[in-house]
Design a protein around this nucleic acid. Structure first.
Lengths: 337, 337
DNA sequence: TTGTATGCGTTATCAT
DNA sequence: ATGATAACGCATACAA
């Protein structure tokens, strides 16, 4: 029932092609003609059919955003919403739409392969995919513009990430400098690159400080509050005096465990987190943590993607964004000698 | 470069229409033919072009999800992520995709009108739109299948919501029954139906209990933690002994304000929230609250939408989902006489 | 049960 | 500067 180019053409007494030119803001149209057509378009509130445009032009102005459900569990974490906001903001200004897929494991392979081949999107952004997931190969092979959120070991892959290793090293070094001796860590899932890298950063800090690395001071969490809580419980019997926790959400859990054990923060155990979630300035005590900005990561990633789409150039690139150590009161000088 | 129906047809020695029939699982195809074609399809991992299908059939199997940015600020609240998960889960099983628009005010009108007319989606789900937003009219008039998340006063509108009035009344009555006398409220934004209705429920409870309604015990929040904190600050000087807070996120802020004022929860001031966020069982003390399930709301809404799309029937409907009062320790018997 | 022909609403290539 | 016309890849009414 909606109007078509043909209708607008008839109503303004020109040909379909001219209307098309007007809509696509091409140069070679007489000003007078353009205005006449624009008037009709506006008065009827005409919208070109994007499916048809996609078919004819091969471009849809849609990007796909894929978030594996394996991490969607963490959806209580504002990380993904913020990422989406960044993605969406850029898409709005550049007249793109975003197709969102929260992929569940059982559909995942089929879903990806559909996305890559069904002509619905011009490019795809994939967040937090597990390391060495074969899906990455399919994407790279597909020749579709793409970018991963989360570092990938291979040099031949487009990705955007923060420097998790250096940031975590910095966080841990902060504890070292404050004089803590038994510095533990609660890690993220190890098949997730961010979990892996943050653990490596912790190890690096110990090594650089000539601290022995004690396996009993390492507890694997799963990026959830509950996981952080349980990991802290396990650590307690080894009496750490400080803990680098690989995410703020887990840090909240760890702090809960400490409170239940009647241990003071930071006098008995100091905590440093990772993320700087909005709530982290409001915990008791406020959390010292590494700030990354998911919404900016989303923006930057999409900008890269859209540029790749529109330029047609497909150079491979790894983009690293900055982080910041935000020191709050959690580790005061109180525990220093 | 991807294959087309025509290619598959040639490769399997049949006509394009037959391939189309096989793909669309139509009955009238000889088993033998079907298998032959399927084999070719699978071996080439053929995916039909959805833009072309959309053009030809008038159906895209895509639904639009619109979340106004006016509320996107609240994106630290797991409400929307959970809603999206519910939406996405149903879409996955029913082979739909979701187009996500986080609409910023300046683009909002244009965006909606584009969505409604550009043939990209078969239906649209709109979350948390402000009351009396004229956009609602455009949607209803557009003849496109739609559903709003959040009650709408007009009977002629499709929506899905929980019964905010009754739930809030229930929550407030809980405080009444526990013997509190100066029951305050921190409301949500009043041009948001959930903010308005929850306030009405509070008023109703007071009225039904023959309590006077004291304007000084009403503080408007904005559904954020910070808003709850500030609202509580304003309430303090009027010495409420209990507060019904219109969202858990605001309740966290209110609790923070109480702690800073050295007031005990619930001995000095009791708190009841609304939402039952994952963290609400882990606050200190655990929060008594109204449980609604955003992911189920998302699922139900999309089911309604897809049914409307596929059946073509457009009966107007208001769907109300249940809530549950989850009583935790926040309001113990300690304050009762 | 299968094939042929037409149309969906654009863009893009030619003419003019 | 503008118009005619051929794709784009599929669904579908109709014919066989």
């Amino acid at each position: 029932m909606p109007l078509t180019l043909e209708d607008i053409a008839r109503l303004s007494g020109v040909s379909r092609s001219t209307v098309s030119r007007v809509i696509n803001e091409e140069e070679n149209v007489k000003d007078q003609t353009r205005q006449k057509v624009m008037q009709v378009i506006n008065s009827y509130n005409f919208q070109p059919n994007l499916a048809a445009r996609g078919l004819a032009s091969g471009r849809t102005n849609v990007i796909g955003v894929v978030i594996p459900a394996s991490v969607t569990v963490i959806f209580t974490d504002p990380y993904f919403p913020q990422l989406l906001q960044g993605v969406s903001a850029v898409c709005n200004t550049r007249e793109y739409s975003v197709m969102l897929w929260l992929s569940e494991p059982e559909y995942e392979r089929r879903m990806i392969s559909r996305i890559l081949h069904n002509g619905l999107v011009d490019g795809v952004l994939v967040a937090s995919i597990p390391m060495n997931d074969p899906i990455i190969e399919s994407i790279v092979e597909s020749k579709m513009p793409y970018i991963l959120i989360g570092r990938h070991p291979s040099a031949a892959v487009n990705y955007l990430d923060v420097d998790n290793v250096q940031s975590s090293r910095k966080a841990t070094m902060h504890l070292v400098r404050l004089g803590y001796k038994r510095i533990a860590t609660i890690t993220g899932i190890q098949n997730q690159i961010s979990g892996y890298d943050r653990y490596q950063g912790y190890l690096k800090a110990l090594q650089d400080s000539n601290f022995p690395s004690r396996p009993e001071l390492v507890a694997e969490g799963d990026f959830t509050e509950e996981g952080g809580y349980k990991a802290m419980m396990r650590l307690l019997k080894y009496k750490p005096d400080a803990v680098f926790v690989a995410s703020d959400t887990m840090a909240y859990g760890a702090m809960r465990a400490l409170r239940e054990a009647n241990l003071r923060i930071p006098e008995d155990v100091a905590i440093v987190g990772f993320d700087d979630l909005p709530n982290s300035s409001k915990t008791i005590p406020p959390l010292t943590t590494i700030r990354q900005m998911p919404s900016m990561m989303g923006s930057r990633a999409v900008e890269f993607l859209i540029n790749a789409i529109e330029s047609g150039v497909k150079s491979t690139q790894g983009i690293i964004m900055d982080t910041e150590l935000v020191v709050r009161e959690s580790c005061g000088a109180s525990t220093m000698e």
